[in-house]
Design a protein around this nucleic acid. Structure first.
Length: 206
DNA sequence: ATGAGGATCCTCT
DNA sequence: GAGGATCCTCATA
């Protein structure tokens, strides 16, 4: 396999829904580990109630408002990290959550980081598992994925035929269920299952 | 200063 | 399929 092409900031400075489809099949690299993305979710800015940016700019979501092609990492549930690729551009929030992928290099390291995985397909099957396999954490928040010198980089992969891209509601969110902004590669063993959003109180109208 | 609620995962049953 | 782990972030006061 020849040296893959690194993605550019300009090609990621698009609507997160388009960026999500573009990212499928692309490869994220950190250290010795490479993951080929199989499942992603688009999050928009202030018009998306499920987005971290829905209520405006805060210290946590700062990176999402910045330039495209940077990594937005956040901490959830007191123990996990999730990673996003920032899309759109300065001043307009948008990002794509990296939900799952297939480990295509660094299998031994990946396995050692995920002792609970029962198969290689499970290594990066889920957003927190994906960050875990790549060794990403708080310190990687904001890194430029389009810079060859960055510790985490994003490369183009074999293109995914549009017919192989499926869409559905986002996982684990209890609002905006009607928008099919989760995209995945049909048939990929790494795609995580759908799970409805938890306990959001449904306000009873009277 | 406080408290509620997570873009999850793992271990059981 | 349910429940717990675990702590950060933000809104409210």
């Amino acid at each position: 396999m020849s040296t893959p092409r690194q993605l550019t900031r300009a090609e990621l400075a698009i609507d997160p829904i388009d960026a999500a489809k573009l990212l499928l099949g692309c490869v994220l690299e950190a250290g010795d580990v490479r993951v080929r993305l199989a499942e992603v979710e688009a999050y928009r800015g202030i018009d998306d109630p499920a987005s971290h940016c829905y209520r405006g700019r805060t210290p946590r979501n700062e990176v999402m408002w910045g330039p495209a092609g940077h990594l937005y990492v956040y901490f959830v549930y007191g123990m996990h990290f999730c990673a996003n690729v920032v899309s759109l551009t300065d001043g307009v929030a948008g990002a794509v959550l990296l939900r799952a992928g297939e480990v295509v290099a660094g299998l031994d390291v990946a396995r050692s980081r995920r002792p609970a995985a029962r198969s290689d397909a499970e290594l990066a099957k889920g957003p927190a598992r994906l960050t875990s396999v790549l060794g990403l954490d708080r310190g990687d928040n904001g890194v430029d994925l389009t810079d060859p010198a960055s510790p985490v980089r994003l490369y183009a992969g074999d293109p995914v035929p549009p017919a192989s891209i499926l869409a559905g509601p986002r996982v684990g969110v209890a609002v905006a269920m009607e928008v099919p902004w989760r995209f995945w590669v049909d048939g990929s063993p790494a795609v995580s299952g759908y799970r409805r959003g938890g306990k959001r109180r449904v306000r009873t109208v009277r």
